[in-house]
Simulated assay, not measured.
Amino acid sequence: MADTLKCIKCERGMENISSGCHQPNEGLGFHTRGHYGSAYFDPMDGSYLEISVCDECVKAADEKGLVGHGDPDPRYSWFEL
């Protein structure tokens, strides 16, 4: 795993704060194994893509209404509000 991850939107560099794992500092990391309907990536062989998005780009997209929010997942019951 690279020591520096780049935001997929603005290309800002972020430190990868977890050895062997995709964990950008001051950002979010996502991976996908593809989706039915994608004309670009759905290999069905177990390979995957990883992307990073910096906090500033996520915040700007959220403020524009481009980010969906879901209800809490009950599997994470240790995270009590």
Results as ranks from 00 to 15, higher is better:
67 V>Q: 11
73 D>H: 11
32 T>C: 05
77 S>V: 01
17 I>L: 01
8 I>S: 08
73 D>L: 00
64 K>Q: 10
68 G>R: 07
16 N>E: 03
54 C>V: 00
11 E>L: 11
59 K>I: 05
2 A>K: 09
50 E>Q: 11
21 C>F: 09
4 T>N: 06
22 H>I: 09
12 R>N: 03
60 A>N: 06
42 D>G: 10
56 E>P: 12
33 R>G: 00
51 I>L: 14
67 V>L: 04
72 P>K: 15
63 E>M: 08
55 D>E: 07
16 N>F: 08
28 L>G: 04
43 P>L: 02
55 D>Y: 06
80 E>Y: 15
76 Y>G: 07
35 H>A: 15
55 D>S: 07
34 G>W: 01
38 S>P: 07
72 P>D: 12
27 G>F: 00
65 G>F: 01
26 E>M: 00
44 M>L: 15
18 S>N: 15
40 Y>D: 10
80 E>F: 12
61 A>F: 08
78 W>Y: 11
61 A>D: 09
81 L>R: 13
50 E>Y: 12
49 L>T: 13
47 S>N: 06
14 M>Q: 05
55 D>G: 07
62 D>V: 13
1 M>V: 05
50 E>C: 15
75 R>V: 11
6 K>T: 08
9 K>T: 10
18 S>G: 13
60 A>T: 11
29 G>I: 02
49 L>H: 09
59 K>Q: 03
11 E>K: 09
56 E>T: 13
51 I>S: 04
43 P>M: 12
21 C>M: 14
23 Q>G: 02
62 D>R: 08
6 K>M: 01
16 N>A: 15
29 G>L: 01
24 P>H: 00
69 H>D: 10
8 I>T: 11
16 N>C: 07
29 G>E: 03
40 Y>A: 11
7 C>I: 02
66 L>Q: 11
78 W>Q: 15
75 R>F: 14
14 M>H: 00
26 E>Y: 03
19 S>E: 15
58 V>Q: 00
37 G>R: 04
43 P>D: 07
46 G>P: 03
42 D>R: 11
48 Y>F: 13
33 R>A: 12
30 F>E: 06
15 E>I: 00
51 I>A: 02
10 C>S: 09
60 A>C: 13
9 K>A: 15
32 T>F: 05
69 H>C: 12
53 V>L: 04
53 V>C: 05
20 G>K: 08
7 C>N: 00
13 G>M: 02
58 V>G: 01
70 G>Y: 13
70 G>F: 14
72 P>H: 13
80 E>T: 06
76 Y>I: 09
10 C>P: 03
34 G>Q: 08
58 V>P: 03
78 W>M: 10
14 M>T: 05
23 Q>N: 05
58 V>C: 07
70 G>C: 13
36 Y>L: 12
25 N>R: 09
33 R>S: 15
